[in-house]
Amino acid sequence: MGKNLLLAALMSSALATGAYAADPEVLTVGGYGGSFEIMMKKLVIPAFEKEHNVKVAYVSGNSTENLARLQAQKGAQELDVVILDDGPMYQADALGFCAPLEKTPIKDDVYDLAQFSPNAIGMGFVATGFAYSKEFFEKEGWDLPTSWEDLKDPKYEGLISVPPISNTYGLHALVMLARNAGGGEKDIDPGFAAMADEVSPNVLVFEPSSGKMSELFQNGEIAFSVWGSGRAASLANTGYKAGFIYPEEGAVALMLAGCPVVDSNVPEEAQAFIDYLLQPEIQVQLGEAMGSGPVNKKTVLPPKLAESLPYGEKISKLVNVDWDVINPLRQEWTARWAREVER
């Protein structure tokens, strides 16, 4: 009987050891909070875990916070995959935090505009253009703004909101005004002159908060704003009559982007997770959660999403800014904005 008990104990120990050895690897993903995190945890992560026999740990934070995590953990990274806005992603890649992407068939289905670098790839498109109040323009009988130059029109005095330069939407507006005046990222002076002298008098408030921007529309305080297509779609989903305009010079592409992080303990799973987010059905879920248009050309959006998001022919109306020029200058531009624009 004693031998039987010993044998049972040894078998139990062996089974426990085997179970421990079979425990799935842990893949740590850094990405946005809010509706994105909810969507990831409810829909994306459980299916990926089952398919790849891996446990996903999710670390939520905005792009600035997750970029700071990469910098703080240099040489001993906690994150295996990171999802950031395009500007911070260019920084992360330039600082050497992104590992080379594997060449896989699904990446051939991604628009050229979303092909960031050999180490990072776009996950979804958001367009920076104009969100507007349909009710206001119908009541006034005014034509809709069609150009970035319309931000200067005196009839909009006190009726516009533009996010500050600390917000990507405001930065995009500054660059487009500079380009229209013959400058651009490498010659931003014309943009500052236009924003300070011609646009600023029309601006009720330089509002960085998406929640407060929504309130400005709902309270009837502004007619239109520089904003993202996803934000406009979210506002419309509340029942407010919001529309979105792609300016004739081009709406600016603001992309969600992903990269596998260097020195990951689970590099294969990290690569697989990037590819998983590029699948057409996941691209639809990203659109529903983040208001982002698909980067995979084979994605078919439901009609309601297709109407409001960058999709199909609308992709051709998107333009990119040069983050390699902007990022080293952004702190200097932010200080200048405070002196010259929001003075």
Rank of each mutant, 00 (worst) to 15 (best):
Y240V: 03
A120Y: 07
Y32P: 00
L113R: 15
L43V: 12
I106V: 15
S12H: 00
I45G: 01
T146W: 00
K74Y: 14
S161T: 12
A47K: 14
G312F: 07
N4T: 10
L204E: 02
V203G: 02
I274Q: 03
E51V: 14
V82A: 08
M213R: 09
V203L: 03
A127H: 07
V26C: 11
I165C: 09
L235N: 01
G258R: 06
V325N: 00
Q285K: 15
A335H: 11
V319E: 04
E249D: 08
Q218T: 09
I222L: 11
H52E: 15
N180Q: 13
R69Y: 01
F224H: 07
V110L: 13
P100R: 06
D187Q: 08
E138H: 10
V261S: 04
G191Y: 03
K41C: 10
K139Y: 03
P247R: 03
E215Y: 07
V266F: 02
E102D: 14
R336F: 10
D80R: 13
A181M: 05
N62W: 08
M255K: 12
K107Q: 15
K55P: 06
Y240S: 04
A289V: 05
S214E: 13
A72Y: 10
A253P: 04
G287F: 13
Y246V: 08
A242I: 02
Y111S: 04
V44Q: 08
D23T: 09
D150F: 05
V266N: 02
N53R: 13
P267Q: 02
D324P: 00
Q73W: 11
V110F: 12
W337N: 01
L5I: 13
N62A: 04
S166K: 12
W333S: 04
L204F: 05
A9T: 06
G239N: 01
F224G: 07
E249V: 05
E248H: 07
V321K: 00
V175C: 11
S117W: 02
S209A: 12
A120T: 13
Y90N: 06
A289I: 06
D85A: 14
L27C: 08
L318G: 01
K103E: 15
P247Q: 05
P302R: 13
L43K: 15
T128Q: 10
L6Y: 10
W323S: 00
D93C: 00
S166D: 12
A72I: 10
V162Q: 11
L101G: 06
E249T: 03
K152E: 10
I38F: 14
I326A: 05
K41P: 07
